[in-house]
Design a binder for these strands. Structure first.
Lengths: 222, 222
DNA sequence: AATATATCAGGAACTCTGTCTCGATAAAAA
DNA sequence: TTTTTATCGAGACAGAGTTCCTGATATATT
């Protein structure tokens, strides 16, 4: 019954395999070994096997996995073969950037409308997607059975917009704001957290520099 | 010697504490307990204490931590108090969005120039930052001692641009492309991987729906 | 046909991260 | 001054995830 016991790290790695495999398929390669995938993507080969096993795809000794089959397995597993309609709220710089990506449609998400509160952009079309006033979201979301909401608003507005989304029947929120919205049980929130990334980057760079400095100025005596 | 043994999850959580604490400080709150931080951010309170301990900040029983001190400690720890100059390559939609964020400067990264290969945008200024031809990157990066490179180019170009960055002395790459560039030892790469996020989101949503469907159509007999 | 080899798959061991428990301590209350 | 209470900090424990190890299997080689 508990089919959802897939490690989250696995879910995070699958898209990276997917992109790698699609490019491989485009190059015309038919078969691939887990060892090769692992080497190219910097993941241990046993890890690759375990991750792929979750998708149900099986490999054959001595020849590896069929590239096209793997692509199909991952697509099915992630439910990327039939895109779910999504609403985006916050048509600022980041929101506009996301609207520009046709690639999301292949990743299970199709942005069908954008919302904002600024009159200057309401009514315009960005990359073929209309920007509507936020007040229209609840009604439209219900009527169109929208289940994914993309949150690209400033931190201050994030909680209110998240509440509005949930009240309108949206079940999953892709959150780009630097705050984590408080949501009721059962609602899925996936935080992008750009600043987390910067935390890791800056700290590692600082350590890296300190190490380089220490090494050059005086490699301490044994 | 091994001062860099900070768990990566901790580094990822620190920015979220930081934002929370800055907002608290703006509201005029002086003291805060780890328990309260944990509750508001959805992190176990013991976890909050361990994370904050890495920054060197100490709390006092019965009163908690000093908000302003905590902010300062995290800033220092992540090296966010003096922003490092960065070059951005790929002034497309996403690149433009990133150029628009003044907030990165408070997160240790100051974008001082953008690069692209498309003549249509070379020479323009985006949010006060000039877009220069990619060929100028190596020379400028060396002369300005740039150590952070932001990669917002299509997957096909990612590896080549990463190579160029590294050859120009850049030590840390903030990568937004869906491929993981192959870099020599010692170079820091932090991948944002938007699609990983979507992998988790789509899969969870699919599982969520299956569960809802199963519950409604027939809650299996005990 | 027999042997060798590349690859897969599943279980065991280890490591890392997160949670729980306990004693200590500083402020407040009695 | 003594007692109570909120909070901290450190160590013990538990769970998850990754790596290692062994055995199985399909193709290639002799």
């Amino acid at each position: 019954m508990r089919a959802e016991s897939v490690p989250e790290p696995t879910l995070r790695r699958l898209p990276s395999y997917y992109h790698y495999l699609v490019r491989l398929r485009e190059k015309g390669q038919e078969m691939i070994s887990a060892a090769q995938i692992g080497e190219d993507l910097g993941v241990h080969h046993t890890q690759v096997r375990k991750d792929l096993a979750f998708t149900g795809s099986q490999g054959r000794p001595k020849v590896g996995h069929h590239v096209a089959d793997l692509v199909a397995s991952i697509e099915t597993f992630l439910n990327w073969n039939n895109a779910t309609d999504a609403f985006l709220v916050g048509a600022g710089h980041l929101g506009t950037a996301l609207l520009g990506y046709a690639g999301f449609e292949r990743a299970g998400v199709k942005i069908v409308a954008a919302f904002d509160t600024r009159p200057s952009i309401i009514g315009k079309k960005i990359r073929g997607v209309s920007v509507l006033p936020l007040e229209k979201l609840p009604d439209l979301a219900r009527r169109m059975h929208i289940s994914i909401g993309i949150l690209t608003v400033p931190a201050e507005a994030a909680q209110d917009v998240a509440d509005l989304m949930i009240a309108s029947g949206i079940q999953a929120i892709w959150n780009f704001a630097p705050t984590v919205p408080d949501v009721p049980n059962g609602v899925i929130v996936e935080n992008v957290a750009l600043y987390s990334s910067l935390g890791v980057l800056s700290h590692k760079l600082a350590v890296h520099r300190r190490a380089a400095l220490a090494a050059s100025s005086g490699p301490k005596p044994a």
